[in-house]
Amino acid sequence: MAATEFLETAQGRRLAYHKNEGTGPTIVFLGGLKSDMEGTKAVHLEAWAQARGQAYLRFDYSGHGESSGAFTDGCIGDWHEDTMAAVTALTEGSLIIVGSSMGGWQALLLARAMPERIAGMVTIAAAPDFTEDGYWASFSDEQKAALKAVGQVELPSDYMEPYIITNRMIEDGRRRLVLRNALDLPFPVRFLQGTADTAVSTETAVRLLEHATGPDMHLLLVKDADHRFSDGPCLGLIEEAILDVVGGERCDA
Rank of each mutant, 00 (worst) to 15 (best):
R176Y: 09
I76C: 11
G93I: 04
D82Q: 10
E203R: 12
T131R: 00
M121N: 03
R175S: 14
A196M: 08
E154K: 12
A182C: 04
A149E: 15
G93T: 06
G103L: 04
L177I: 09
W105S: 03
T131H: 08
F191S: 00
A107Q: 04
P186W: 11
G194W: 10
G104P: 05
L108E: 02
T166D: 06
A89K: 13
V150H: 10
M160N: 13
L183F: 11
K148M: 10
S140M: 07
Y163V: 02
D197P: 08
R112H: 09
D197T: 08
D141R: 12
V189L: 14
V153L: 06
A145N: 05
Q193L: 05
G134D: 14
G120M: 08
L179T: 10
I96Q: 04
L192A: 06
R117D: 02
G151Q: 07
K144F: 00
L177F: 00
W136K: 10
L147I: 11
A113V: 02
E154H: 03
E92A: 14
D197M: 07
W105V: 01
A107L: 11
G134E: 12
G120T: 10
I164G: 01
S157R: 10
K144G: 01
I170T: 03
L109N: 04
W79N: 04
T131V: 13
V189P: 02
T131N: 03
M169W: 12
A107M: 11
S140L: 05
D158C: 01
S201A: 12
E171W: 00
E142S: 13
Q193M: 10
R112N: 11
P188Y: 09
A182F: 03
S138C: 04
D141E: 15
V153A: 11
N181M: 00
V150G: 00
H80P: 00
D197Q: 06
V153S: 06
Q193N: 08
C75G: 11
P156K: 09
A89W: 01
R112T: 03
D158Q: 13
V98H: 01
G74E: 07
L108M: 14
S94D: 15
V98P: 03
V178A: 07
I124G: 05
E81T: 12
G173K: 01
Y163M: 13
R117Y: 04
E132G: 00
N181L: 00
A126D: 04
L90C: 07
G99S: 09
R180K: 14
A196H: 13
E132F: 00
W79M: 06
V200Q: 10
D129F: 07
T131L: 15
I170C: 04
L90I: 07
A199V: 15
D82E: 10
F139C: 06
A146L: 13
P115Q: 07
Q143E: 15
A127L: 09
G134P: 08
L185M: 12
A137L: 10
S94P: 14
V153E: 11
